[in-house]
């Protein structure tokens, strides 16, 4: 089990490279307090998605540590890692949608696998889908949805499980302004309810209203 701590996420002195000559991070680090917001900005290729994949455990750092609630993720066994992820909500660049089931079944699966004791009702899920105009598409399979709609389904999957930590890689990549505003309002409400947020974007200034810190991977922190 993950111990309680005031720090939700700590990236400490992380070094990572894909190829010897292509070092993405060298001694990189930051901390994100519980209930806080971190917007990671930077141009294309600056390592935003790599950072998300490192935090999600899809990549392993060459050195350094990624700590969640004070515990290093590298020291977690598969069971503990699964427990940690069951409390998270992730909207990644690579789709996390389960293509073998309908939109509603995707959301129900996400909720069932959540460690949160608060489970939304079917009406609450439909209400979230309705906000994005997806309620009529709840019985469709993901392949029948557009990229943007799939992103929104991922968002509903993540929010419906009442995560303690929500990780969203590049929200503005597939969404139009209208849907993005609704989505941001939804995650803002989640943040106000206690969810820690980490968002990556090429336009971090868009997220100033969240009131968190902005970390620019080009090297400027505000």
């Amino acid at each position: 089990m993950i111990s309680e701590s005031q720090t939700c996420l700590e990236v400490a002195n992380v070094t990572f490279h894909y190829q010897p000559e292509h070092e993405v991070f060298s001694g990189f680090g930051f901390t994100l307090p519980v209930g806080g917001v971190m917007v990671v900005g930077g141009p294309v290729g600056s390592g935003k998605t790599t950072l998300v994949r490192l935090i999600a455990g899809l990549l392993k750092p060459d050195s350094g540590e990624i700590k969640v609630s004070g515990k290093s993720t590298s020291s977690l066994n598969a069971r503990e890692r699964a427990w940690m992820l069951s409390g998270w909500g992730m909207i990644l660049e690579d789709s996390t949608i389960l293509n073998d089931r309908t939109v509603r079944d995707n959301i129900m699966t996400s909720v069932r696998l959540s460690s949160s004791r608060i489970r939304p009702s079917r009406n609450e899920i439909d209400s979230m889908l309705r906000q994005f105009g997806l309620v009529e598409k709840a019985t469709r399979f993901p392949e029948a949805l557009s990229k943007g709609e799939q992103k929104l389904v991922q968002l509903v999957m993540a929010c419906a499980r009442n995560p303690v930590f929500l990780l969203w890689d590049d929200p503005d990549s597939a969404l139009d302004e209208e849907h993005l505003d609704i989505a941001l309002e939804l995650i803002h409400r989640k943040n106000l309810a206690g969810t820690t947020l980490l968002i990556t974007s090429t336009h971090p200034e868009k997220y100033k209203e969240f009131g968190g810190s902005i970390l620019n991977l080009a090297g400027v922190e505000t």
């Binding site: 598969a78 699964a82 073998d100």
Partner: peptide
Amino acid sequence: DIVRNLRLLGIPPQ
């Protein structure tokens, strides 16, 4: 991909 995503959703390995 399904298993990868189920793992990301926190399905227990057992």
